[in-house]
Design a protein around this nucleic acid. Structure first.
Ligand SMILES: Nc1ccn([C@H]2C[C@H](O)[C@@H](COP(=O)(O)OP(=O)(O)OP(=O)(O)O)O2)c(=O)n1
Ligand SMILES: [Mn+2]
Ligand SMILES: [Mn+2]
Length: 710
DNA sequence: CTGGGGCCCT
DNA sequence: AGGGCCC
């Protein structure tokens, strides 16, 4: 969400003139130059990237929980601010991140729902990510309500399978009247728009959520374009219009990756708009930011971004915090810390991993500048305590973590003098899988001294190692199933073949569950009976069998389970039954359900998401650029982004989904595998070297991690 | 009358 | 341990 200062939206006034001045050619050369230097073993091609952003996310979740709220102006309140609001409220002038007082002033009838507890939002957030991942594993989260997807592989496969190029874009096309755009000129993006439409439809059908999507050739552009038409619409960006969308960002702060501090530095250099930066000599930028960052900034404002879609995996940290006007007694502090710890331990337990580090953060009261003075202290969590967390001895764990947290507190605050706190945050980090944790302090990898086997073994997987309660709770993706028909609602020729994607029997496509809303359906977890000796020797041929035998059973299971892990998905919607009664939200399982390979095409119905082809924001007016500084990124292979070596994205996409996830996890040194907030990622805590190396090679790190690589 | 989360880099 | 970025 944008800060309020950024919310004035003047895009429309600017974009047509964005081509007036050519910008130096050199700036766009980096990407193609780099890729040209590679061996052209893979057909050079641009990527197709999707960006999804849910509509008024917290408000939508609350409206699902209580449908009566749909018709009233609704604001989600955290302390004294309205963090977001539904579109009814927006129509009446309420904005995101508005103070409560201000919002009530704008809209006295505003209904406020407390939103300090993020549990429901977090859960829904992961359901969306899991759903997307079930189609294609290349999904990267950004915040709770956004996901990037690299569907290049899916596109290539589809393109090879069909010769039918007589179709149009789904949704809007930036800078055009979409009906007037020939999809045959941009078949890959056009296909992407169809996939985006279907994924949005799936999100609405299965989860009851609406959102926007952007379809473009990189993450930066996909994100920028997704917000063009707002709510519940999608927009594609053609290469010829890259200059338009970037050029109309008159405030540099709107460029993702340019935050408050960077914008201030730029402004000190006299740079306020994107065009200013486009024309600014990179050399003068280097002085202030350093070479790599300078170049990245230049690239960003040209719409160039070859950062990969990096599968997010399990979270690296879990934190819980509370703010208040004043806290000044040790008793309050202790009670607050214990309260936060109880909640955190609860979440940790469901995650199934063990935190190795505890961090305590405080904010002291200061009259001015209340929000930039945080102090923190962290400490290792003794193993015996960590195990209580994961094993479910909640009260026990809290009882032991409390004193540890208080020790950290006293490193910052002298209890014998007066203090005035306005915030306390408790954070678990350095999260390790049980297998890794139980094998000692080091990761599993340490068992194999000269292991080149680690790659094949996927030693860093993080899923729970046994079929414990944790596994059942976390491995089950809970998806709601509308009781509505499964009728196919389009005769779009591309949909039928989409059913081939993302499907894998073992993966267990989203299971439809009908019944009581609050009924929890147990997971039918298919176990990997990997204790078979022959299997062992096959899979672990590079592992010393003597060493292997010494490993705890759970770890053996871990090592054996990687390439062929079976798992079943499970379904149950705790409170999600209220799928919007909108008649147009029919759910099709076309991409997923194996039993529906023979898709029923129902004539006459359209799969439209009530996209008003409104012509607001001028984005529909066509403008062709004369000069083009904004060259399309060509030669950007997915292998540069998500795959090691020269892996053909098309071939990759044809692999069974679970295999895709395994491979990705190995390449990333993480193990998402199970679809849930837990078990997504391995602790790369101690693996930071590996992780860093990976990130560096992929250009995923550094300042503009969000968009531009180095 | 300015939340409550996350991520990565230094 | 802090800083900057994202939502
Ligand atoms: N500084 C911020 C920004 C966002 N959020 C939360 C509240 C939002 O509901 C959610 C998603 O942020 P968005 O910027 O996408 O805003 P919305 O989804 O609420 O609205 P929109 O429909 O404009 O996307 O993240 C937050 O707590 N603090
Ligand atoms: Mn968002
Ligand atoms: Mn949103």
């Amino acid at each position: 969400m944008e800060k309020s200062e950024d919310q004035t939206d003047e895009d429309e006034t600017e974009w047509e003139s964005s081509f007036a001045d050519p910008v130096p050619f050199e700036a766009s050369g980096a990407v193609s130059g780099q890729n040209l230097s590679k061996t052209p073993t893979v057909a050079p091609t641009s990527r197709v990237i999707l960006h999804f952003d849910l509509d008024c996310f917290y408000a939508q979740v609350e409206m699902i929980r209580n449908p009566a709220l749909r018709e009233v102006p609704l604001g989600i309140q955290q302390k004294y601010i309205v963090v977001t609001c539904n579109y009814v409220a927006r129509q009446m002038g309420v904005t995101k991140l508005m103070s409560v007082v201000n919002a009530k002033e704008k809209c006295p009838q505003l209904v406020l729902v407390k939103g300090e507890d993020l549990t429901h939002y977090r859960e829904m957030s992961y359901k969306v990510t899991d759903l997307l991942m079930s189609y294609c594993p290349l999904v990267e989260r950004l915040g709770f309500d956004e996901n990037f997807m690299d569907i290049t592989g899916m596109i290539e496969k589809r393109l090879a399978e069909t010769s039918d190029c007589d179709f149009s874009f789904k949704g809007h096309v930036y800078g055009h009247v979409s009906a007037g755009v020939k999809a045959s000129d941009h078949p890959r993006l056009a296909l992407g728009s169809h996939i985006a439409a279907e994924l949005r439809e799936a999100i609405q059908c299965k989860l009851g959520l609406t959102g926007c999507a952007g379809i473009a050739t990189n993450k930066l552009l996909a994100k920028l374009v997704s917000g063009t038409f707002k709510p519940n619409q999608q927009t594609s960006l053609l290469p010829e219009n890259i200059g338009d969308i970037v050029g109309c960002l008159n405030s540099l702060r709107k460029v993702p990756g340019v935050g408050h501090q960077t914008a201030k530095k730029l402004q000190a250099l006299g740079l306020a708009t994107v065009k200013d930066l486009q024309h600014f000599p990179v050399n003068n930028l280097v002085k202030e930011f350093g070479g790599p960052t300078a170049q990245r900034l230049k690239s960003l404002v040209l719409g160039v971004d070859d950062s990969p879609v990096t599968p997010t995996g399990a979270p690296q940290s879990l934190s819980d915090e509370d703010s208040f006007k004043k806290m000044s007694s040790m008793k309050e502090v202790l009670e607050k810390i214990q309260e936060l710890l109880r909640s955190l331990v609860d979440r940790m337990q469901k995650d199934g991993r063990q935190p190795q580090t505890l961090r305590l953060t405080i904010r002291r009261y200061t009259a001015t500048n209340k929000w930039f003075n945080r102090e923190s202290r962290q400490a290792p969590i003794p193993n015996h305590i960590a195990q209580k967390i994961a094993s479910g001895c909640k009260d026990d764990a809290v009882a032991q973590l409390g004193p540890l947290a208080m020790k950290l507190f006293h490193k910052m605050v002298d209890g014998s003098t007066s203090f005035h706190l306005t915030l306390i945050n408790v954070c678990f980090s350095n999260l390790q899988s049980r297998a890794a944790a139980s094998s000692g302090k080091a990761s599993i990898t340490s068992f194999f001294t000269h292991s080149n086997a680690t790659q094949a073994l996927s030693t860093q997987r993080q899923e729970p190692s046994s079929h414990s309660t944790n596994l059942q709770l976390s491995a089950c993706s809970t998806i709601t199933q509308p009781a509505s028909q499964k009728t196919f609602t389009t005769k779009d020729p591309f949909y039928s073949d989409l059913s081939l994607y993302g499907f894998s029997r073992k993966q267990s496509p989203l299971v439809a569950v009908e019944g009581s809303p609050h009924q929890k359906i147990a997971c039918s977890t298919v176990t990997h009976d990997g204790t078979d000796t022959t299997v062992t020797e096959q899979l672990l041929s590079n592992v010393d069998p003597e060493v292997f035998k010494l490993l705890p059973k759970e770890i053996q299971m871990e090592l054996l389970s990687s390439p062929s892990t079976d798992y079943a998905t499970l379904v149950s919607p705790p409170e999600l039954i209220n799928v919007p009664h909108t008649t147009e939200s029919k759910c099709t399982e076309s991409l997923k359900d194996v039993d529906h390979f023979n898709v029923v095409h129902k004539e006459g119905e359209q799969l439209e998401c009530s996209e008003k082809e409104s012509s607001h924001r001028m984005a529909e007016t066509s403008s062709s650029s004369g000069n083009n500084v904004f060259q399309e990124e060509i030669l950007v292979q997915s292998s540069d982004c998500a795959f090691p070596g020269n892996v053909d994205p098309k071939v990759f996409s044809e692999l069974p989904l679970d295999i895709q996830q395994e491979l990705i996890s190995e390449w990333k040194q993480k193990k998402p595998v199970f679809k849930s907030p837990s078990s997504r990622k391995p602790a790369k805590g101690m693996m930071s070297k590996d992780r860093k190396a990976v990130a560096k090679n992929r250009q995923a790190n550094s300042l503009l991690k969000y968009f531009k690589p180095g």
